[in-house]
Amino acid sequence: MGSFFKQIYRYTHPRSYRHNENLWPYMKIGRARSGEITKLEYRGQYVPIADLSSLKGKFSGPVMLTATGPSVKEIDFTQPPLPIPAFGVNGAWSLSQFFEFSFYVIVDMGFFDKKPEIVANIIAARNLTLFTTAHGIARIVDRFGLKNIQCTLALIEDAACRIYQPALKPHELKGFYVVKESSAEFAPDRADIGFSTDIRQGIFDAGTVIYWALQISLYLGFTELFIAGLDMNNFDKPRFYESQSDMQPTNLKGIFTNLVLPAFQHASLLLKDKKIRVVNLSVNSAIPDYIFEKVSYNDAFFKKN
């Protein structure tokens, strides 16, 4: 039946709407004037989602962003810093033995499919807000059932392919959002590299989930962002939560120079302008310190002045 509806959708919609084909006609949405999805129904069930407007600027101070580079293994988290909200991505959940995650973001659909045991633990956390896309919510409901979702779901969208709206090609992004007078800010020489200061209007992708987490953290109101595991090198090594035998592939090496690095440089300038400090706890990261300052975990939290 799913393939039947997919064929109908393809025949009745332009190719630019193809990213919606797995959701139609199972998902129904309602939007607020500010752009975000506020009502969600999937397979005839109402799915509760967070009110993104109520989260805008709600928090302040520092937050710990936990990426998944191998360098995380070099940090002694048994010495936790002072209480600080933790924001995880993908497989960083194993660090929950050291941090109580308040926020999480997963936008890689392959992660939902390949790491269901991790996803099951994340959605069972009552005090956690999981930011994910409509496709991610559909995967969660299909695999685990609505009754097993204990966390708060916050629905976010890729600015290039919002639900039931035509997809935008990379070179079309700046022209579209500038005309809309949106909260998006673009790199001066790149129409395809944007950064959203209002996630209700969509979030810009740069090939890595941490780029999404930066935009979300800014929207939430945090002013000091500590990032563990932002290595962006050693792509042939397992992520800190993987072993060599279960290592999942990554395309980051191929897009690092032309997309990831200039995107982080753009984010750095924007965040500095907004007086937001970003600290990369991976001292051997391929992200230069002129983009994000590099400080070891011990020096960042335990060095005495």
Rank of each mutant, 00 (worst) to 15 (best):
F59I: 05
F195M: 14
F222Y: 09
V179S: 12
V283S: 15
T68E: 01
S285Y: 03
D192H: 13
D205Y: 00
P188M: 05
M247P: 05
F204E: 01
D299S: 15
I140E: 00
G69Q: 10
I163V: 15
N251M: 10
L269M: 09
G229P: 14
F301T: 08
A191R: 01
S285R: 07
Y17Q: 05
T257H: 10
N258P: 02
I255F: 05
N234G: 07
F111Y: 11
D299F: 10
A206C: 11
E21I: 01
N90D: 09
S54E: 02
V105G: 07
F4N: 08
F222E: 09
Y17G: 04
I291H: 08
H19F: 01
L23R: 04
T68Q: 04
M64Q: 06
K294M: 08
N284Y: 13
G88E: 05
S54D: 03
R139V: 00
G145W: 09
R18Y: 10
G91W: 02
K253G: 10
L146A: 13
I210V: 14
Q201G: 12
L65K: 09
N284C: 02
E172P: 02
N90V: 07
G69V: 10
D113G: 03
M27A: 12
D299V: 13
Y9D: 03
A50Y: 08
S3Y: 14
A92F: 05
F77L: 06
G2M: 04
A167S: 15
R277D: 14
Q165E: 15
K272H: 12
S282E: 05
G229Q: 08
S54P: 01
F111W: 10
W93L: 03
Y42F: 00
R33G: 15
F235L: 05
K272A: 15
D142F: 01
V105T: 09
K58I: 07
I203H: 07
Q248K: 07
K115C: 07
T129K: 11
D205V: 02
V141F: 05
D108R: 05
V119I: 03
E242P: 05
S285K: 10
S34D: 15
F4R: 06
G91Y: 08
G202F: 01
K6E: 12
R126P: 00
D108I: 13
Q45K: 15
V89N: 01
W212S: 15
G91F: 02
G194F: 03
V178S: 09
F111K: 06
K237A: 14
A32D: 13
F264T: 04
I29K: 11
S34P: 04
I106T: 04
M64C: 07
A159R: 01
T152R: 13
G69P: 07
D192S: 11
P14K: 04
Y9H: 04
M1H: 11
K73S: 14
I49K: 10
Y42T: 02
D198G: 03
S245W: 06
Q150G: 07
E21R: 02
K114M: 08
G57D: 10
P14A: 12
E74L: 13
S285N: 11
